[in-house]
Amino acid sequence: MSNGVAVIETNGLPEEWEVNTSAAEEAALLERIRQGNTAAFDKLVRDHLPRVVNLAYRLLGDRNEAEDIAQEAFLRLHRSLPNFRGECLVMTWLYRVVSRLVVDHLRRERLRRRLFFFRRDEEDPDPVDTFADTAPSPRDQLLARETEKRLFVALGKLSARQRAVFVLRHQEGLPLREIGDLLGLREGTIKAHLHRAVQVLRKDLNDWQEDTP
């Protein structure tokens, strides 16, 4: 990831991701941060933190890892502020950094596991996930919670890029062109990743629903 580059051309965030501060207010806040106002940076963090943690959580499926990734994204933002020219929203910038940090993180995890299990193909199911604890939840647990858990298991069977493309398109509502910009991939590749991801998820979740009494 290029830490120094703090400008991207995209601003097409889903409406719900728009922070309740105007571009002018954000620019003023950034200026105060550059002047060394720590309270201003704290406000920026508090404004964006829940969204950033949630994005990382949807991509990773693990709360602790999501919080670590969010912290790392804000630290990179802090380091990049001197070069931040305000040509995009801070949230857009964070979106990009979080997506790439997560893809890198997932790939490192995959590599670590593949080295252990000597898998031949990245697209092969991950043995750790295949044998993951998918025991049914307690009876009083809500079905939604169980479905969510199952979704993360199914997402774990995708490659890092397939997973990122699916979450960014389906759950975050980003257009494919924007996702291509965020991840540095061509639109054709993005479409193929999305298709493959949906195929795997539908099959996995359909099988699970059929097996569920």
Binding site: F41, R46, L49, V53, R58, L151, Q171, L201
Partner: peptide, 29 residues
Amino acid sequence: NSLASLPRPTLELSAAEVGWLSARIAART
């Protein structure tokens, strides 16, 4: 139907959790 049935996992961060995480980030900066 398949796509609509997929959940959208969401974490609800309390004010205390936001404060704690913000403080950690501030300390690291």
